[in-house]
């Protein structure tokens, strides 16, 4: 009689196992991130996600079972997104100062954020399903899932695209800021949130509260703009071809 399987089944009957696993991976990932002297190409969230995926594979826990338990954590994403309204309010004077350039930049940048990748993927011969799955790559997860369903893409692939985009945005922004000689935290934060959604925003809060507020702004405006226009544009292009 093997004690392993019943024990795992017993443990996973309570969501506390998945929650504990997530907390452990997060804390360990953060500690490793500090130990590695905070590399910009390897954000703490990627280390933690790799640890967590490794742990799930090691103990043989199916992702669906884990995800069910982890709902106890992910449900907090709702109030946490609402909470971003606080730094947004606190930085309101500095945002109002810049409303004109931000208002001009946002539609162009948010459109290009989707178009560049779509064009490259299309040139490389990706299928329509893949194009539909990566179109919302710069939009924060809760909004992006809705958009992708409307376009007929795969949500799992979308989440992958979100991870890659979010993670790659961080070194891209530091690189581009150095090229263009930009050290304004407001611009860096806005670019992080606009292109790298929640992952970029988390990074921006590590830089400073100001960068974080501009990132929240960039993230939410990109989300709203893309949610309204992308499904519409998609329908027009599909009709044309």
């Amino acid at each position: 009689m093997s004690a392993d399987t019943p024990l795992l089944t017993l443990l996973t009957t309570t969501p506390l196992f998945a929650v504990g696993l997530t907390l452990a991976a997060y804390l360990l990932g953060s500690a490793l991130f500090q130990r590695l002297k905070r590399p910009s190409w390897l954000p703490a969230i990627l280390i933690a996600a790799l640890l967590l995926a490794g742990a799930l594979a090691l103990i043989g826990l199916p992702y669906a079972t884990y995800q069910q338990g982890a709902t106890w954590l992910t449900v907090l994403l709702g109030p946490a997104t609402v909470a971003l309204g606080m730094p947004l309010y606190q930085q309101l004077p500095r945002i109002v100062e810049l409303w004109r350039p931000l208002a001009i930049c946002l539609p162009i940048a948010a459109t290009l954020a989707a178009c560049y990748s779509l064009a490259i993927a299309w040139l490389l011969g990706s299928s329509d399903t893949i194009l539909a799955s990566i179109a919302a790559k710069s939009v924060t997860a809760p909004i992006a899932i809705g958009i992708t369903e409307q376009l007929g893409g795969t949500v799992a692939l979308l989440l992958g695209a979100l991870l890659v985009t979010g993670v790659i945005t961080i070194p891209c922004v530091s690189l581009a800021a150095r090229w263009l000689h930009i050290d304004d935290e407001r611009l860096i934060g806005f670019a992080l949130g606009l292109n790298g959604h929640a992952i970029g925003t988390v990074r921006a809060f590590e830089i400073s509260p100001t960068a974080g507020a501009f990132a929240s702004l960039g993230m939410s405006l990109t989300g709203i703009f893309t949610a309204v226009l992308l499904p519409l544009a998609w329908r027009l292009i599909s009709m044309g071809s």
């Binding site: 997060y26 996600a49 992910t74 989440l159 925003t201 988390v202």
Partner: peptide, 11 residues
């Protein structure tokens, strides 16, 4: 926030 998006990311 970073921890809350982790379960989705792992997928």
């Amino acid at each position: 926030l970073a921890m809350l998006i982790m379960p989705g990311v792992v997928g």
